[in-house]
Nucleic acid binder design. Structure first.
Length: 750
DNA sequence: ATTTATATCTTTTTT
DNA sequence: AGATATAAAT
């Protein structure tokens, strides 16, 4: 009970109102996670069986964090608590109720790559133009339909959707959706959205099942409620319909998943759906300084769609927000690395107090390089997951296929890997044939002799014999033994073992690591179900790289802003605050949703406790080309009272070999060579002078301590590049005046 | 069927 | 730049 005393008044109310519908509007840094965990602890203390509590989150990371904190407060009592992401919880329920909706319990979960690949084959089979029907946009369209619970049949009959598709010159989308759905079903597969869609179907068509779970989940809690989509909302509403003990926690200012169908409308609907709703607002920020809170407020105030909240803090004023200006993305990295180094020594902080946040995962590269040069340890959260690596996916595909012989996407990956002499045309033929005959893939493959003969038929037959043997193994051995056997017999292990290149070695190690992970899974007492199917189900939903390995090490954390939600750090560095990058070009052009980008910026800013640094570069590599960049409009939206004027960059840029160059009065950055299309006259000949675009120049200033490649260390006294002849006269304190030429002078910064 | 060369496209965030 | 698709050569 003592923990209740730590809470302020609204927090306490949020924790102790356990019966009836509750909506907690929780401003950034208002102790939301604490309230949620205490609320669960309080429920348990009031005699509620953890077995009857369902706590839903949005991301794996949030789920992990929550579980950790609950265990701290409630100890082992929390063991039986149902907690996880929407997808993992309902995948589990679907797995045990699969037969009711026509699936088997070992259904496959298709990841995004599988879905795209399936769409590609369907578009190919329908002989449509895959440039018009790009897999990513088709999938996006299907996904958003599913999130709104629009079935293929309803999609085709929906006049608005059809008009949309026709005006986008994609009239066949509804048909693709229909076929896609049939193919998934036939393959015994669900995509991410199906997990929610089919849960809705299950609860709609099987009231006994709904009843069972309604009775079971007496208390339902939803974190990050502003990020739920319609499909998720309806599931929770149904589940809570009996007991009405539903508690949602959210902040409309932090809604950043509209691209996944999240709908702020859910918050408004919620008040309508539950007339006796209790609304609690948490508005006091305990996390950040005055400066940061006020700056954040000034940012979010530019959004029209925002409601009913004024976040304030009684923390100290704190330092101004620092703005850094770099001449390139590499230099940006260097500035940030130096800033971290300095801040750490000055304030006596540890690396764990630092986070670098960016809009896109690809921005991590320049940061990484810079940190490595200064020997600053770091961890990257997110990025390419272990389970998305090619070799890992290959072995998993074997496991998947051994479990589910109709898994079309797994089959496509493995039937000719390692090489068996079964080519793409053969695979396409088999799939098409199965479809025409209305039989499953496995029926074709396992009886290939009935349908064709010849060398290829023999090869396919051999393949089917291997698969049959795998099935036997799975039925008799545990997940680890089965997986090791399959890795060996499939030939994957040998294939990678024979590859003696550095990458090959790494791939082999990754396979071993996967096998180890399976071993761990089997050995862990937490996992009751040790079957291969259970393991596969589990990892299908782990899309983020796991970071528990180095969680205790002292390291700077790097991640996208999206994955930073819910976290906090003493010092935060938001990099790449440039127009077209943040806000993202895509977001503005495709959905015209500047407000979501702004909320994202708000989320990033409010991660900081004591010090916030923003940076932008004036040039950045994009698709291998150096492109000029403008500072983001968001920078001008911050009240100037709270932010410093941009610090001038040092004028150094990096070369490919790692040495630093000083950028002197340079003509500009090279323009790309004009690509010549056949039939066109050759453009002007490529001459250096004509091929330099104007670009910002960063003059080398006196006082810089540098190392010259030939002459050694020195300090610059004066720079004279008035000659404008591509040369600059630079005088040094210890090796006199040197004439440095061309756009870059070879100088090493120290 | 497989390997190699060439062209094209990528350009967000996560389950 | 890097990944992926297409075309041509083996």
């Amino acid at each position: 009970m003592n923990y209740i005393d730590e809470l302020n008044e609204p927090q306490r109310e949020a924790v102790m109102t356990i019966n009836g519908p509750v909506m907690i509007i929780a401003g950034a840094g208002s102790g939301k996670t604490r309230v949620l965990t205490y609320r669960i602890a309080y429920l348990i203390e009031q005699g509620v069986d953890p077995f009857n509590i369902l706590s839903l989150t949005f991301t794996n990371k949030a789920a992990r964090e929550m579980r950790k904190r609950i265990e701290k407060v409630a100890g082992t009592n929390a063991r039986n608590l149902w907690m996880g992401t929407f997808h993992s919880v309902f995948a589990r329920i679907l797995r045990s109720e699969a037969e009711k909706i026509g699936y088997t319990s070992n259904f496959t979960i298709y990841d995004t790559d599988d879905c795209k690949s399936l769409i590609k084959t369907i578009v190919g089979e329908m002989q449509l133009d895959d440039k018009v029907y790009k897999s990513s946009s088709v999938l996006g369209r299907i996904s958003s339909a599913k999130n709104k619970l629009i079935s293929p049949r309803e999609y085709v009959n929906n006049a608005i959707l059809r008009a949309d598709d026709e005006s986008a010159m994609r009239p066949k989308l509804g048909e693709i959706y229909k076929i896609y759905q049939e193919r998934c079903f036939k393959a015994g597969a669900m995509d991410f959205d199906d997990l929610l869609f089919n849960t809705n179907i299950l609860f709609r068509d099987h009231l006994d099942v709904l009843n069972k779970y309604q009775n079971r989940f007496k208390y339902v809690m939803v974190d990050e409620f502003q990020d739920t989509n319609l499909s998720q909302y309806l599931i929770t509403r149904k589940l809570a319909a009996r007991h009405q003990n539903i508690c949602v926690v959210g902040d409309d200012a932090q809604s950043i998943y509209a691209f996944r169908g999240a709908d702020i409308q859910n918050i408004l609907n919620f008040e309508k759906d539950y007339p006796d709703l209790k609304v609690v607002k948490l508005e006091e920020n305990y996390r950040s300084t005055q400066m940061i809170v006020k700056a954040a407020n000034s940012i979010i105030s530019h959004n029209k769609a925002q409601l009913r909240k004024s976040v304030f803090t009684s923390n100290e004023d704190g330092a101004l927000i620092t703005l850094l200006k770099a001449s390139s993305d590499n230099e940006e990295g260097k500035l940030i690395a130096h800033a971290i180094f300095e801040d750490k020594t000055q304030k006596q902080l540890v690396y764990n107090n630092f986070a670098i946040l960016y809009r896109t995962n690809s921005q991590s590269r320049s940061m990484e390089e810079a940190l490595r040069k200064l020997s600053i340890p770091y961890r990257i959260v997110g990025g390419i997951s272990f389970y998305q690596r090619k070799e890992v996916k290959d072995l998993i595909s074997y496991l998947r296929y051994a479990m589910n012989h109709n898994d079309e996407e797994a089959l496509k990956r493995i039937i000719n890997y390692p090489k068996r002499g079964i080519g793409d045309t053969t695979i396409a033929k088999i799939i098409l044939f199965a479809d025409e005959q209305g039989i499953t893939l496995w029926e074709v493959i396992s009886n290939i002799g009935k349908f064709m003969s010849g060398r290829t038929a023999d090869l396919i037959d051999q393949f089917s014999i291997i698969i049959k043997s795998f099935k036997l193994i799975i039925e008799t051995k545990d997940a680890f033994e089965a997986a090791s056997h399959i890795a060996k017999v499939s030939g994957i292990l040998k294939e990678l073992y024979d590859d003696k290149t550095v990458e090959g070695l790494a791939r082999y190690e990754n396979i071993q690591a996967l096998l180890n992970a399976i071993k761990e899974y089997v050995d862990s007492e937490e996992n009751e179900d040790k079957s291969l199917g259970a393991f596969l189900q589990e990892i299908a939903l782990v899309t983020d790289a796991r970071d528990d390995k180095d969680a205790d090490d002292d390291k700077v954390t790097m991640m996208t802003i999206h994955s930073s939600k819910g976290l906090e750090f003493k010092n935060v560095y938001i990099v790449g605050v440039e127009e077209d990058l943040f806000p993202s070009q895509m977001m503005i052009s495709s959905r015209e949703d500047l407000e979501e980008e702004r909320r994202l910026f708000y989320v990033a800013v409010t991660r900081a406790e004591t010090k916030l640094t923003l940076s932008y570069a004036t040039t950045r590599y994009r698709f291998g080309r150096l492109k000029p960049c403008e500072p983001s409009r968001f920078l001008t939206e911050i009240d100037s009272k709270y932010i410093s004027t941009p610090q001038k960059s040092s004028g150094f840029v990096d070369s490919e070999d790692g040495s630093s160059f000083a950028r002197l009065k340079l003509g500009g950055v090279p323009k790309p060579k004009p690509t010549q299309t056949p039939g066109q006259m050759a453009a002007k000949p490529y001459t250096p002078s004509a091929n330099f675009a104007p670009s910002p120049t960063a003059d080398l200033a006196g006082g810089q301590r540098i190392e010259h490649q030939k002459f050694g260390m020195g300090t610059i006294l004066e720079v004279d590049n008035s000659g404008n002849d591509g040369k600059a006269k630079v005088s040094f304190d210890n090796f006199g005046e040197k004439t440095l030429l061309l756009s870059f002078a070879k100088l090493m910064i120290v």
